[in-house]
Amino acid sequence: MARALITGVTGQDGLYLSELLLSKGYEVYGLMRGQNNPKRALVEAIVPDVKILTGDLTDLSSLIRALEISRPDEVYNLGAISFVAYSWENAALTSDVTGRGVLNALEAVRLYTHDDPSKVRFYQASSSEMFGKVQAVPQSENTLLWPRSPYGVAKVFGHYMTINYRESYGMHASSGILFNHESPRRGPEFVTRKVSQAVARISLGIDDSVTLGNLDARRDWGFAGDYVEAMWRMLQQDEADDYVISTNETHSIRELLELAFAEVGIDDWAPYVKQDPRYMRPAEVDLLIGDSTKARTKLGWEPKVHFPGLVSMMVQSDLAEQKKLAGL
């Protein structure tokens, strides 16, 4: 039986990846911060077969201990402070967890494996936010990185550290440069879930508006459930490498609003949407669109859920949840 250790198991990616690996017969361990983590119950409810370990990406000894207990064949480092807006307010903490945490995870694997660093395969969750002030459209594995947030800078550090450990120690360490990927499990602070939740509440008469920032920002949005399969496929390759994972399409916040409100029968969404400068980024990333040709060619991966279906899935999920909460 293959064994895997997932950091960041409480996030949407961690949950979908856990489901995928369990379906493939893996023994799955999930690393979680703190003994009283409020998301522990969520993990136990959705993926009860995951064995939960406590640890922290900023604590090297806890990572080594987790490796000794789980004895994994594969490590998926998904743990991070991942909300971009938060990273400006807490740049140092973001750097420690999202950046230096990758170094700790890599070093823990190196120390654990002793004389054969390649025997544990390592996945690093890199991000399209590393492209920031984009230097080419679309963005591929060879596009110059120009991050525009503390989160993006921290991800660049982790990305290059993964490459460095691969080249220095022969580790089977791959990075997935994932473009925005969403799902009904996305946190409500992220714009897609903020919109789907607000649309559900507005349609039920619970709220009368939603407040957003830049409506013209464009992103390449895919479904998180599709993207975790790409992570797994990377670690099944003979050679480690880096891959852009994307839909190769770009959509604006306005398009997101149009589809989401249409899902509940509202054609004119403008009266329900407010803008506030507080939700504008200090340095905006205006256009992100990936070129996932390499992943499609070498990994045989391609997205199954496209943008309209993703938006519909999220709105319908939030409608069901809000109706249940409201007793409707």
Rank of each mutant, 00 (worst) to 15 (best):
T7C: 02
T10D: 12
Y16Q: 12
L17E: 10
Y26G: 09
G34N: 04
G34L: 01
I46K: 12
L57H: 01
S61R: 15
R65I: 03
D73L: 02
S87D: 03
S95M: 10
T98N: 04
E107Q: 14
H114Y: 14
S118P: 09
V120L: 08
F122R: 02
F131N: 07
V137A: 06
S140N: 14
E141P: 07
L144K: 14
P147K: 04
P150W: 05
V156F: 05
Y160D: 09
S174H: 00
S174T: 03
H181N: 14
H181Y: 06
E182N: 11
R193L: 12
A198S: 11
R201V: 07
R201G: 10
I202M: 01
I202H: 01
L204Y: 02
D208A: 13
T211L: 06
A217V: 14
G222K: 02
F223W: 07
F223H: 13
A224R: 03
M234W: 04
L235R: 05
D238A: 07
E239P: 11
S246W: 05
S246Y: 01
L256G: 07
E258V: 13
V264Q: 06
V264K: 05
G265C: 05
I266S: 06
D268F: 00
K274I: 05
R281A: 14
P282S: 11
A283R: 08
E284L: 07
S292A: 15
K304H: 12
F307K: 08
F307Y: 11
E321P: 02
K323N: 06
L328V: 10
